[in-house]
Design a protein around this nucleic acid. Structure first.
Length: 273
DNA sequence: GTCCAGGGTAAGC
DNA sequence: GCTTACCATGGA
């Protein structure tokens, strides 16, 4: 066990942010599996959080995973002078962090996310991990390796609820397994080069590419445009006033996403979405 | 049963 | 260039 105070960190906000799909409510906290490691996080009062790992594991892995060395206070301060909508979003979304998830897992999750609800995505990801991921001591499974998914076959992927997205996942897994898709090389590319490379994959369009860039490669300029962004932008005269947010547009997007979903009735009317 | 979901693609204009 | 059917299936 390791307990510490963390500013601008809220496990509930992260679990509901839609950037990860393996963080499950568990009693008064949350359980998750990342990079083959299991963790439970729970509030410990007064801005403190309790992690079910050693201090060494926290410092060696989870600190980076939760992006705790990035100053989100600076993002919050920069948004204090933004327009009222972005200010409200920043206040509501404070505590969200851009996780440093594995690129392959992020790619697969957002490939299968298209035209799916978040609960449905979680179900599909759970099925993939249960059938093709390596079991972990103490329960649960790691996210499947590229080789495991490449060998699965499209029918077995469909059986996990992927539907017409099964060929997309199969092809991405094949390219990753054979090395044609080299995540180390991708990480060295500038933003535009990375986006272009991702979009050579079938099933990867502007939105999925932006999600993989933001959540899998920590490119904070990426701004995924989904149905929630379009709805929210319509309330802002067509688009957001992101001037002043140069360099962390993706963080702002997460704030807007959390705000729009949490306040959907207030923002869009009770009979809307 | 109906409707929609963290979209992408290909066909048609 | 921009619009439009269509894609499978789980959840609400």
């Amino acid at each position: 066990m390791f307990t510490c105070a963390i500013p601008y960190f809220d496990a509930a906000a992260i679990a509901g942010s839609g950037q990860c799909f393996r963080m499950d409510a568990d009693g008064d906290g949350w359980s998750l599996i990342a990079a083959g490691r299991r963790l439970r996080v729970a509030p410990a009062g007064a801005g403190r959080w309790r992690f079910s790992c050693s201090r060494a594991a926290f410092e060696g892995f989870w600190r980076g995973y939760f992006d705790l060395d990035t100053d989100y206070g600076a993002f919050q301060r920069a948004l204090e002078t933004a327009d009222p909508f972005l200010r409200a979003a920043a206040e509501r979304g404070s505590g969200v962090r851009i996780l440093r998830q594995e690129p392959f897992e992020t790619l697969i999750c957002f490939l299968l996310s298209q035209r799916k609800s978040i609960p449905a995505i979680r179900t599909a990801v759970r099925a993939l991990c249960a059938r093709f991921g390596a079991p972990l001591r103490g329960g649960g499974s790691a996210f499947p390796t590229p080789a495991a998914l490449a060998a699965a076959g499209e029918d077995a992927l469909r059986a996990c609820g992927l539907g017409y997205r099964a060929p997309y996942v199969a092809e991405a897994a094949r390219r990753a397994a054979c090395g044609a898709l080299d995540f180390g090389a991708l990480a060295a590319l500038p933003d535009d080069g990375l986006e272009a490379a991702l979009r050579t994959l079938p099933g990867v369009g502007p939105k999925v590419a932006a999600c993989v860039m933001l959540f899998g490669f920590h490119r904070l300029r990426a701004f995924p445009r989904d149905v929630w962004m379009n709805r929210a932008a319509a309330l802002c005269g067509g688009d957001f006033a992101l001037c002043g947010c140069g360099g962390f547009e993706g963080v702002v997007q997460q704030y807007i996403f959390c705000y729009a979903r949490a306040e959907r009735a207030f923002l869009f009317g009770k009979e809307g979405v």
